[in-house]
Design a protein around this nucleic acid. Sequence first.
DNA 1: AATTTAACGCAACAATGTTGCAATTGATTT
DNA 2: AAATCAATTGCAACATTGTTGCGTTAAATT
Lengths: 130, 130
Amino acid sequence: MKVTRNTTAKTAVLEVFEKSKTALSHTEIQKQLNNVCDRVTIYRILDRLVNDDIIHKISNLDGTVKYAKCNHSHQRVHIHNHAHFSCENCHEITCLETVKPSYIMPHNYKVNEINFTLSGLCPKCLNSNI
Amino acid sequence: MKVTRNTTAKTAVLEVFEKSKTALSHTEIQKQLNNVCDRVTIYRILDRLVNDDIIHKISNLDGTVKYAKCNHSHQRVHIHNHAHFSCENCHEITCLETVKPSYIMPHNYKVNEINFTLSGLCPKCLNSNI
DNA sequence: AATTTAACGCAACAATGTTGCAATTGATTT
DNA sequence: AAATCAATTGCAACATTGTTGCGTTAAATT
């Protein structure tokens, strides 16, 4: 098996995630990194972190892709089946770790993963009367 | 209010949707149209059809965007809150019109729209023992 | 048939993501 | 501490996807 290394670029990316309470796009991460590393390197780090189950990928309704740190606090095996909220006003994406949808599937489908994104107004924007 | 016109390009795009049982990406539509119109025109037609509530936009887990015809059969006012299934093997996306998730939201969020995508194996691929 | 303007084609651009390859550097071994 | 190995990086080049401006075309109405 491949050994993964703790490089300065990877550490820097992880710090950005640590500081952020919301999900981040590649571009947002790049801006915060301030030329710590190349654009391509960020893509590769994100790929690795997703593979290692350290972050997860979220694709938004408008087609944009964001990443967020996984919260492993309570589970041994991490499951990504929680919901995300996408604010139409500030465009922030937050994980709704407590929201787990229930649903009934037709027969003959094998479900491996679910993606549940709700959009509307987040508490912050709702309170400022948009 | 703007008047929308029935152009040959728009009719051709609608025919492609009519023939297809699954959701289609811009690229897939373009291939089926065989130079009926320009690439840009397809984008503009898709935008119009989404606005007119004739098709809906689905953004997939992997970041790809697809479109599918809306099924207005039983409702007056169309709601897009049904689930989609994305097959990991054949990459087809189908609407699961009957699947509607139930969930409980934290306070202070205003939900306008939901996107619920399940991925795994569709009946066709499940039966061929992948 | 004339008129109006929605829709179109084309070109050019912007954003996002990918790939190949030589150089670098983290981790391990000697 | 130096040598070794390969994971990781930077750079350049490319691919894909989506957008915008503008002059032209063609639906729909008069």
